[in-house]
């Protein structure tokens, strides 16, 4: 490959590589190595934002697998995150080690997600969206009213996690933990996307009838998509719960489902990289607003209060503007950006 201009694949294996060029491998490796040192020179608040980004990345990548790749619209993703959070919190409260409670919470979420995915056999598009919205509201009701298990509206306290006798109770610990899990999840989903089940997801999304004709079992594929997506959502929930150390029903409302959908749309549907971008963008948006209102308060004193009240409205506005002006999302913009620099300064 050295000395040639362009990238020529000579085998299927080289074509389906995640990072085909050595430049990309170096770039990712260096970035991850540098990123892992963040806790050494960032304060606790910045780290907490980064931890929330890691959790959001896991959730968004999971939803992207279901909605972006398999085409099954889910308005219940927030509730599945919540199921994972509650399940892992309850299990670790019963004395299960964190390393087992986290995937166990994911499994519980996967079971719940697959149960609510059953209607997807018969329902498509808007009907499925409404069915998953119903799932969201029913699960939220259970969080709020199944007092014996969830602590009702008071929520419940979660013990801080413990890895092989090493207590993780400060921001750097949680940073490395959530970073490791997020990197694993992104790697796993990228790998799922280049195997047979992943291609089956895309086939079902593109046209269910031809997918079935080429031998994809529709029901099993859709159910698998719901299962994997809810499992990862549950893992995200478990991490979140163990980081903030409490869970309440308000954390997992319909607003959370909507913000996950917003992440994958703003990032670019169907692209793992896009979901990561979207998760970063949506998590940083309120931080940016806080910063901007703080900076503007010197000039316009009344502005900061009203800006905080407008948080949700600005979120909606950003969503609408993205859908109208940039429907392909941030990952498309990133591709254009890379294409521009590829032949710089000989752009044409």
């Amino acid at each position: 490959m050295q000395g040639t201009c362009g990238l020529f694949h000579t085998s299927y294996a080289s074509e389906s590589q995640l990072l085909p060029t050595s430049f990309q491998r170096w770039r990712f490796g260096l970035f991850f190595a540098a990123y892992a040192f963040c806790p050494l020179f960032l304060d606790a608040y910045d780290l907490s934002v980064l931890i929330m980004i890691h959790v959001a990345v896991i959730g968004a990548v999971a939803l992207n697998l279901l909605t972006g790749c398999c085409g099954q619209i889910s308005l219940g993703h927030g509730a599945f995150v919540g199921v994972g959070a509650y399940a892992s919190a309850i299990l670790s409260g019963l004395g299960l080690p964190f390393l087992l409670a986290l995937p166990a919470g994911g499994l519980v979420a996967a079971c719940v997600g697959m149960f609510f995915g059953i209607p997807s056999l018969r329902l498509k598009g808007i009907y499925l969206a409404i069915a998953t919205l119903a799932a969201q509201i029913i699960i939220e009701y259970l969080f709020l009213h199944w007092d014996g298990l969830t602590g009702g509206s008071n929520g419940m306290i979660v013990a801080s996690p413990d890895l092989f006798g090493l207590a993780i109770d400060d921001e750097p610990g949680h940073f490395w933990l959530s970073f490791a899990v997020a990197a694993l999840v992104v790697l796993a989903v990228s790998n799922i996307m280049r195997t047979r089940p992943g291609r089956a997801f895309v086939a079902v999304r593109d046209y269910y009838l031809s997918a079935e004709i080429v031998g994809v079992n529709l029901f099993a594929t859709k159910l698998a998509a719901f299962g994997v997506s809810s499992f990862l959502a549950g893992v995200a929930g478990g991490l979140w719960a163990h980081y903030v150390m409490y869970v309440t029903p308000e954390m997992f409302g319909v607003g959370l489902s909507i913000s996950y959908l917003a992440m994958i749309i703003i990032g670019g549907m169907g692209s793992v990289q896009g979901s990561v971008f979207g998760a970063i963008f949506i998590t940083l948006l309120p931080e940016f607003l806080t910063f901007a209102s703080g900076a503007a308060s010197d000039v316009l004193p009344g502005l900061s209060d009203s800006l905080m009240a407008m948080k949700e409205g600005i979120f909606g506005l950003v969503l609408v503007l993205f859908l109208i002006f940039e429907p392909e999302g941030l990952s498309y913009r990133w591709r254009l950006f890379k294409a521009y620099w590829k032949l710089y300064p000989f752009a044409h």
């Binding site: 619209i73 969206a129 749309i265 909606g316 969503l319 859908l323 429907p327």
Partner: peptide, 9 residues
Amino acid sequence: ISVIMVTIG
């Protein structure tokens, strides 16, 4: 999904 999300926004 885009149309749904635009009305949600």
